[in-house]
């Protein structure tokens, strides 16, 4: 006969229930895994949102996500030659050369923008960029004639992209630099990788480019602080970034060539090879990383009117915010920003 001690059983049941409850609660706790790595000459921060029970999976996935970003970097760089990448394509200019699919994708998306911006946005500026890099190293200001000469006669429209055979014919007088494209493109690649890895919520921050997947636990949007273009430790305000949205800022404030103590923006006009100083910063929200990257650069180089024409020609949802040189803000109606209390910029 089985004798059950009711009291002992009771205590056992209570402690088991408590343990199960605690375990369940621990595993269900929402966590954020954040990692930072230096890729594409910038700090890339990836945040994955999930449950404690998925912690190992999240950690594995985040490491692979960085690998995707590194792969895009290697495939797109103009500085180190790998088979089929931009540097190798530059070396094989003037002939058909087989390139990787990342390069095909970036070229076919970005080339139309060169024409759409009347040549202001230009992916064929590798030589011009190098003139400015050398200039800042030697403290020498390149002349307008020098930068103009570096542009060559061909325009990105002359690049032949043979998608079917993964080949590209680069004009002999041109070398490409995808500096204003690959970061945004990399974000898209990482997002599709994360979706395939069953990640529902993630935020990827590549400095001036951020893309959102899903939502954090307690809200249906991510809060993104937009940095003040003049004071590094201040923000203009916060923007709500929803699932699938990408935000990008172009400004002269955090990347520039320092020559004789003067700062020259790293965003160069494809028409002159010289920086433009139309705005302090331009911020764009759209639904693709690569488009946010290309557009923030393009709009930074165009007048507000020309920028509006460009936006109207495109099929993407686009919101834009300009910080003008006189510290006023011009923005599209749908660009919702909650200004911080100490913000000095006024709506025009």
């Amino acid at each position: 006969m089985l004798i059950v001690n009711v009291k002992k059983l009771g205590i056992g049941v209570i402690s088991s229930i408590l343990l199960i409850f605690l375990f369940y609660f621990y595993m269900n706790k929402n966590i954020v895994i954040t990692q930072t790595q230096f890729i594409m000459n910038t700090t890339i921060e990836i945040k994955l949102f999930g449950k404690n029970s998925d912690k190992q999976k999240l950690e594995k996935t985040i490491a692979k996500a960085f690998d995707v970003m590194k792969e895009v970097e290697d495939n797109s760089t103009s500085y180190v030659e790998y088979e089929g990448n931009a540097a190798s394509l530059n070396a094989h200019r003037g002939e058909y050369y087989t390139v990787n699919t990342d390069l095909i994708d970036q070229l076919s998306t970005s080339i139309p923008f060169c024409k759409l911006t009347s040549g202001e946005f230009d992916i064929g500026l590798f030589r011009t960029v190098n003139i400015w890099k050398n200039g800042s190293e030697k403290n020498y200001l390149p002349t307008r004639q020098e930068t103009l000469n570096s542009l060559g006669k061909s325009t990105p429209d002359d690049i032949v992209v043979d998608k079917f055979n993964s080949r590209v014919l680069l004009p002999a007088d041109m070398e490409i630099d995808l500096g204003g494209v690959s970061k945004g493109y990399g974000l898209d690649r990482v997002i599709s990788f994360l979706k395939n890895s069953d990640i529902n919520s993630a935020l990827i921050n590549a400095g001036g480019n951020i893309i959102a997947l899903g939502q954090p636990v307690d809200r249906n949007y991510y809060n993104i602080a937009v940095q003040d273009p003049q004071i590094i430790n201040k923000i203009i305000g916060t923007v709500q970034l929803h699932d699938g949205e990408a935000i990008a800022t172009s400004g002269s404030y955090n990347r520039y060539y320092d020559i004789n103590g003067k700062k020259y923006s790293h965003i160069l006009s494809g028409k002159t090879g010289y920086p433009t100083e139309l705005y302090k910063s331009v911020t764009v929200i759209t639904n693709k990383g690569i488009i946010s990257d290309i557009l923030s650069t393009s709009l930074f180089l165009l007048s507000i009117d020309d920028g509006r024409d460009l936006i109207n020609k495109l099929d993407y949802p686009i919101e834009v915010l300009y910080v003008l040189n006189d510290d006023t803000i011009v923005k599209s109606e749908g660009f919702n920003i909650e200004y911080s209390q100490d913000n000095i910029y006024k709506n025009q």
Binding site: T34, T36, F38, T43, E45, K47, L203, N205, G207, G208, I210, P216, Y222, N223, I224, A225, V226, Q227, N233, I235, T238, V239, L241, I247, A248, T249, N254, T283
Partner: peptide
């Protein structure tokens, strides 16, 4: 916000759950 020292591979990051900011656009 982050401070990165690339040569030394040091990354300094501010974490503040209270201000509900998920990312800083630089």
């Amino acid at each position: 916000q982050t401070i990165v020292c690339l040569p030394n591979k040091v990354v300094i990051t501010i974490i503040n759950d209270a201000d509900k900011i998920d990312g800083v656009l630089k």
